[in-house]
Amino acid sequence: MGLITSLLAITLRAGTSLVYATIGETYAERAGILNLGLEGIMLMGAVSSFATAYYTGSLALAIIVALGVGGLMALIHAFLSVTMKANQVVSGLSITLFGTGFASFLGQRLGPASNGYYLVGLTGPRFTPFDIGGLANVPILGAVLGQDIFTWGTYLLIPLAWFYLYRTRNGLSLRAIGENPRTADAMGVNVNRAKYGYTIFGGMLTALGGAHLALAYTPGWSENITGGRGWIVIALVIFSMWNPARAITGALIFGGINAVQFRLQASGTNIPAAFLNMLPYLTTIVVLVAITWWETLSKRVGSPASLGTAYVREDK
């Protein structure tokens, strides 16, 4: 039982950043905007929040900065794909390329002179798991409750995101925009404003995922801190069939893989580290193939019909 509880604790911690970004991207894609810039936005969220926390000592400010940076990055994507009607795949890729380059630049420039202006290798303030006293020893429950504020945030975010999408009027409009923007427009929804809004919201949540890595999970800044998580999230959105409630499953699977990796490496296994490190990427491919195959067999289409296309309004 102790093993399961500790594995669950690591799983939830490792899955946290994935949950934020998955829900963020789900909302953007529901509005018809495919954002492949997640990896870049996550990196920018991580570097900006870590630098803020390091210099100001304020974790709250660090979160606000990450939210702002993530929102701005997503704003670029929204501007290019909504207003300038650019190709969303390439626009998203360029956000990732820019974010990777900029985050690396900041990481080599923002640090203190004593560290050669590098942010790598510094320790700053961090979020720690809540001390839940005696409850920590309760199996399963201890793992669920003894987490930091980010993980606690996901317990709230998942049901809220589900409720908003499926049980509110705004959620109905959002689903309409993704399925058929013309109809949504006729319903009186301001389609392009909504696309901007949900894309920016998605960027903010994604950056929060990055902040979790730099302020709680790793913690600290290193160049490849995300390790492709931003891309795995794109697959998780497909896996969860664009339903926020199902985001938890994907995050548990990938968090679980991290936990098993951790465990095996700690126990000194004979399996080379490289093969263990391949697991999340190979799993992503397998999951993607399985879900696509299942969709074809059951003739279900999970993706919003207008995903990835620019909405050109016809004059009324």
Binding site: F79, L80, V90, Q108
Partner: peptide, 24 residues
């Protein structure tokens, strides 16, 4: 000049934005 070498990467990353906007 002691500036980060990732400058080149950063400049490349920025180049695509006006490029994409230009596709309009």
């Amino acid at each position: 000049m002691g500036l980060p070498s990732s400058m080149g990467l950063l400049m490349q990353g920025m180049m695509l934005f006006p490029m994409l906007a230009g596709s309009l």
